[in-house]
Nucleic acid binder design. Structure first.
Lengths: 154, 154
DNA sequence: TATTGTTATACTCTATAACTATA
DNA sequence: TATAGTTATAGAGTATAACAATA
């Protein structure tokens, strides 16, 4: 009953795609604000970090600039995000969620959270605490980009 | 410091996509057996459940039959999977990994596992145990399809 | 008629390469 | 010359709708 790094990695490799599938399914099946997980994550980020540039969000998401640019195209076309020239540096772009984007994000968040919560409610509190703690630890070692810098700055 | 179902769900929603990104990046950057995460999961499943049909694997992956059919097309084209008519029911299809498919899967698994293990090695054993346990619990509540039936059969 | 799978079509996600505009 | 972003192109992942073959 040990948990060596490789054993732990193997268990993560088995479980995380399963949970990810559930998240994707819930998020996409939510009629009214049908967002993909990447779209949702972009909106959350832009809501948290005002005035983010394309490079900022691309780094956060772990995507290339062209991929990110195209994703933003879609969000702009759906009126969920605005894209403006940055004051002071005309190469840069300033991204922000619209009011519609914020409500879509919140709606998707609540719906997905509550679906996941239903499953978690079947567990004893002790096991939920283990999951909660595990997620915090995982976040700390898998985080990248702006959050990491922000955390250092705290 | 409680962990209500919604709080726990929120933390999962924040962390799991991050870990998934790391897994995808490691898996895809592994030259020699460049597999996507879905492709990898299909190979693992077919290796575990001999003689699986398209419906079996589609249910396991949480995908529609057309999506699965197309994914298998790609794996067959790359000589990683064989697709034969099932004996006894000519509508069904019997899928199996080729020798090449098995080595690609094992190679991708080892490479990804060891990259994740590197990150996990930075943690104290106690935290790895929490992660390990959390993954087991999550797997139990997010599992679906054939594994669930198998587990019941145990 | 119900089940298993494929084909047609379309949209999102993602990448690399080549390009434009600004600094 | 270096940086920020876009356009062009391509392939994988996913879905729905329509279809074919078998049971």
């Amino acid at each position: 009953m040990c948990a060596s790094p490789p054993e732990c990695a193997g268990q993560i490799l088995e479980t995380v795609p399963l949970v990810m599938l559930a998240i994707r399914t819930e998020m996409r099946s939510h009629r009214g604000s049908d967002l993909s997980v990447p779209q949702f994550r972009v909106l959350v980020y832009l809501n948290r970090y005002k005035g983010a540039s394309l490079s900022d969000i691309a780094e956060h998401m772990g995507l290339t600039l062209p991929s990110m640019s195209k994703m933003i195209d879609g969000l702009v076309a759906r009126r969920l995000v605005t894209r403006r020239m940055a004051p002071g540096d005309r190469r840069r772009v300033t991204l922000a969620p619209t009011a519609l984007g914020k409500t879509a994000m919140q709606s998707a968040y609540k719906a997905t959270e509550s679906r996941l919560a239903e499953r978690l409610a079947a567990l004893p509190e002790s096991e939920r605490r283990i999951i909660f703690k595990a997620m915090q630890v995982l976040e700390s070692i898998f985080v990248s980009g702006r959050e990491a810098k922000t955390a250092i700055g705290k």
